[in-house]
Nucleic acid binder design. Structure first.
Length: 417
RNA sequence: GUGGCUAUAGCUCAGUUUGGUUAGAGCGCCAGGUUGUGGCCCUGGAGGCCGAGGGUUCAAGUCCCUCUAGCCACCCCA
């Protein structure tokens, strides 16, 4: 059997590339406007980094990572998300010693060994933003305004911001306790998964999809009742600032996040268009992460958007299909030689110029020019070469006018530039 | 990782139930219909070890097994 791509890894073919370039370019513009600087970090990190930051008990670390030993026996992992690497770089280069807050973005591939589905690949790509060293609600709101703005300029409608606060190390334990005591006498009616969740991460029971569990969870205590005054105030401020910025959102007291390091503000960008893979992005505050990695206490917040999932929600646009400014249809050996020279001269001026690769009929060349969506076609045969002028055809209108050949480079370069 | 569905031309899919001579369609591609003029239309052509491997049978695209990949749901998550 012919060699094929590794499972869950996809080629991006030329027709799809313009959409990706549009997404990335639009994101870079938005990130720049909001004051984010680019950081590029390696795809490989020591396994320990993810184990410590994401949490040993999470599915990501326990069963979804691409982990292997390199030739010197070190355990390395292909990053399953961007935050850990950015946090590591932040510490390693002591960016905390320079004035913050540090607003960083990075774009690139992530890897998770999951069963692939549409919109869920083993190599997938994210747009990622992090604000390090700022605890204030303004950063939370800024990030959400940025995400909301980016979705709008990308033309992605039908995405809703779903918002919650997960509390902090001060108040979350009491909420967990309240949950545990609520579920205590109902364990028998919960599904097997939920019984495991009860032990590992009780918050997860809240968003189980089993009907029975949903019913039971409906009566569970809400985290909002457990927020400490600081968390409550912080969340109020975030909501107030979102209101000022005109960003709409939905509150979901049952929204939880899978990664251990999240605190306070947590959010997802959800759509109904992608089936079960309903999140195009998500993020939240992770005030404890940097310290957990051995750094100084550094509050931070970040979010990531999945490029594949965004791409599924964006229609192709006609302007991405633009063709060459000029196609030279040359007939015969000498005209082709002349056309090659003219095409190269025009290309060096920055114009997209094409000609047929082989000496085929004019009809075939015209067809090809049309397929390529060429704006104009210059038709050059032996006679034109002798006469020093050739018909230039405008493909949209069909009009043809003669153009002196010795002026072609200057005339077209001036007109096309 | 678990369960289900699927795999036939470059693409989207018929044909599989009831095994039987050269495996089809639409779109796309190439050519012709004009000695050198695109799109629309007409005509013709190229292109398939029917996902891979094994088995049953006189005979397998069609039935059975294994593998691989895709899709859907779960787990989890962007």
């Amino acid at each position: 059997m012919a060699i094929q791509a590794v499972r869950g890894m996809k080629d991006l073919l030329p027709p799809e590339a313009p959409k990706w370039r549009f997404i990335e370019a639009t994101a870079r513009e938005a990130f720049a406007a909001f004051g984010f600087s680019e950081i590029r970090v390696p795809i490989l990190e020591r396994t320990e980094l993810f184990a410590r930051s994401i949490g040993e008990e999470t599915d990501i670390v326990s069963k979804e990572m691409y982990t292997f030993e390199d030739r010197s026996g070190d355990s390395l992992t292909m990053r399953p998300e961007a935050t850990a690497g950015v946090a590591r770089a932040f510490l390693e280069h002591k960016l905390h010693a320079t004035p913050g807050p540090h607003k960083l973005f990075t774009i690139g591939p992530m890897f998770r060994h999951e069963r692939p589905q549409k919109g869920r690949l083993r190599q997938f790509h994210q747009l990622d933003c992090e604000v390090l060293d700022d605890a204030g609600p303004q950063s939370d709101a800024e990030l959400l305004v940025l995400a909301d703005h980016l979705l709008k300029v990308l033309g992605v409608a039908k995405v809703q911001i779903v918002l919650n606060s997960l509390g902090c190390p001060e108040c979350r334990p009491s909420f967990k306790q309240a949950l545990l005591s609520y579920f205590q006498d109902k364990q028998g009616r919960l599904c097997d998964d939920c019984n495991k969740r009860l032990a590992n991460n009780p918050l997860r029971v809240l968003d189980c999809k089993q009907e029975d569990c949903k019913e039971i969870a409906a009566g569970a205590p809400l985290i909002s009742a457990s927020w400490c005054p600081d968390c409550s105030e912080h969340f109020d401020q975030v909501k107030r600032l979102l209101g000022l910025a005109g960003v709409s959102y939905a509150l979901d007291p049952k929204l939880v996040r899978g990664l251990d390091y999240y605190t306070r503000t947590a959010f997802e960008l959800k759509t109904g268009e992608l089936g079960a893979q309903d999140a195009v992005g998500g993020g939240g505050r992770y005030d404890g992460l940097i310290q957990a990695l051995g750094g100084p206490a550094t509050p931070a917040i970040g979010f990531a958007l999945g490029i594949e999932r965004l791409a599924l929600l964006i229609e192709d646009r006609p302007e991405w299909q633009s063709g060459p400014a000029l196609f030279i249809a040359a007939l015969g050996e000498e005209p082709r030689a002349w056309a090659f020279g003219a095409a190269c001269a025009l290309r060096k001026k920055g114009l997209w110029v094409e000609m047929s690769a082989s000496d085929v009929s004019l009809k075939a060349q015209m067809r090809r020019a049309n397929k390529m969506n060429a704006a104009q076609v210059l038709i050059v045969g032996g006679e034109e070469l002798k006469a020093g002028a050739a018909p230039l055809k405008d493909m949209a209108s069909g009009d043809q006018t003669d153009l002196p050949l010795d002026e072609i480079v200057t005339r077209l370069a001036a007109a096309g530039a």
